[in-house]
Structure formats: C-alpha cells, structure tokens
Simulated assay, not measured.
Amino acid sequence: MTTASTSMLPLHDGRRLAYLRMGRAGGRPVLFCHGTPGSRLFRPPESIPESLGVDLVTADRPGYGGSGPQPHRRLLDWPNDAVALADRLGWTRFAVAGVSGGGPHALACAVRYPDRVAAVGLVSSVAPFWPDALDGMLATTRRGFEWAHRSPALLRFGALLAARRPDRFVRGLGSELPDCDRRILARPEIARMAAENARAALTGDAMAREMVLLRRDWEFRPSDVVVPVELWHGELDRNVPVAHGRRLAAALPNCRATFVPDAGHYLIHDIWADVLAAVSRHLDAPGSRDPLWR
C-alpha cells in the first residue's frame, strides 16, 4: 500500500508540479484532475484505490497548491504536464479522471495523447460553453463565469479576496447548494478534506485564471476524443447543471453516461469506487478495445 504523500516534479520550463500518490504501488495507473478551484488534496479515502488495485495520483494544476503558475496557459498545455508526470512515475499508459473544471483537463489529455491515455472519467464536468450554459447555475458560480467573459480583471480581484478567507468563501458557496450536496459536505471526513483542499486551492488567482480558460474556446471539440469516456452527472447539480453533462454525452463519440436523479455536484464522494473501477478496467488489456467501444 502507498500512503498518501506529496512530491514535487521539476518541469522543463522551470516550474514545479506538486502531486500526491496513494493506493496500490504498481497497480493500474490513474491520474485524477481536481475541480476549479481545487488541489491535489481533493481525493478519495485511501482504502478505495488500495482495494481496487489502483495507483492513484492527484496533482495541483498550475497556480494551485504547491504548483507554480503558468502565465497565459491554454487548456491543451495541461496534458504536457500530465505526461511529464506519467513519465516520472514510469507510466506508459494510464487513465485520467476529472471532476467539474477538471473534466475538460482530463479530455484535453486524451486529445493530445490518445496513445497514452486509455480512458477518461468525467464527474459533474463542465462542457464547452454555449449561449445558455449558465442557466440554472448557483449565483456565485454564474457570476464568476460572467466575469470571466466580461471582466477577467474583476474576477481575479474576487479570487484574491477569496484567497484571504477561504473558509468564508466555502461557507458562502455551501449556503447556495441543494440539500443533497449539503448532506455530503456535512460528513466529518469530507468536511475535513474539503477544508484542507480549499486552503491549498485558494492561495492566489489561479481559480480566476482557470475560469477564464474554461469559459473561452477550448481549442478542441469533445468529438475529437477517440478514447472511451465514462461519465456521471447528478440531475440536481447547480454548480454545473446537468445540461452540461448531457451535451458532453451527446458529443463524445465513445461515451457511457450515467445520470443520477437525486444527486448534485458532490456526487463523486458517493461514487469514487465506481469511477476508479470503471476507468481503470480499460487498462487491463493494453492496446485492446473493450467491445463496448467498437
């Protein structure tokens, strides 16, 4: 068993990438992409990847936690960091999963490196924005994406204010959530993890820069993703309304979608095992395709 611990990877451009590894050493490799905002500390209980035989790594994207910023980055820049990390770990072929704003980053890995990425898992993921993409969003999230489009400087200022009081920011956002999400976040073990994740994530303006990134043209289309995609979305999600999940499921060529009627944005805390099992099974026969995807 690998006990969760943080390591640093020096990158070719002088930045460093902070990552956390847990689960089964030498097991089926899965890279997890946290949400927006988020950090490597957003993770499942250690017993889950261990019991599934998964070698799980979570990493801070640029500007979050212990990872250095990457000015003017594009969505398609993240896969280069991801593959540099995979090379460091000795992973030839791996699966990628992402939650919320991490979903597009996971898809970007599959677009850029289809020969390295065996499958993608998406939970509560953002889709490419369309005219009605903000309908049904929480007021705070909607306002952030509106600022991302109209006034990125104002959004960065708001992110810096949130970084001064991350606990207050999290409490304020929580007050807007549906009951199903509040019940999940009230669990003591999840509350502790969410608090430490927020403190690591909200340390600067990385959240604002990433919201601008997600709001703009991704420079690829979901239809460009050729690897299998496993998707889950709660129908009561108000952070990322279920319309995003439905649009992704319709656009992705090889997607198996599960829509959960009574779940919200924090559905992942109830389905960590399902997500890791589903994406990692595509690694059981390297180089082959499950008949489902033919």
Rank of each mutant, 00 (worst) to 15 (best):
M1A: 14
M8N: 11
P10G: 06
R15P: 08
G27P: 12
G27K: 00
L31F: 13
T36Y: 01
S39G: 03
R40K: 15
R43H: 04
E46T: 10
D55F: 12
V57Q: 02
P62K: 06
P62N: 05
S67Q: 12
P71I: 05
H72W: 05
W78V: 01
W78L: 08
W78K: 00
A86H: 01
G101Q: 05
G101N: 06
P104D: 05
H105E: 13
P114W: 04
D115M: 08
D115R: 07
A118Y: 01
V126W: 06
D132C: 04
A133S: 14
T140F: 09
R143I: 03
R150V: 12
A163V: 11
R168C: 10
F169K: 01
S175Y: 03
L177I: 07
C180T: 14
L185E: 09
L185I: 05
R187K: 09
A198T: 03
R199H: 15
G204H: 13
R209P: 04
E210N: 06
M211K: 10
L213Y: 11
L214Y: 05
R216H: 08
R221D: 09
D224N: 02
L231P: 07
L236W: 00
V240T: 15
V242E: 04
R246M: 14
R246T: 05
A249L: 07
A250F: 12
P253N: 11
T258Y: 02
L267A: 07
I271W: 04
I271T: 02
W272K: 12
D274Y: 00
A277Y: 05
A277G: 03
A278M: 00
H282E: 15
D284I: 02
G287C: 10
L292R: 13
W293A: 05
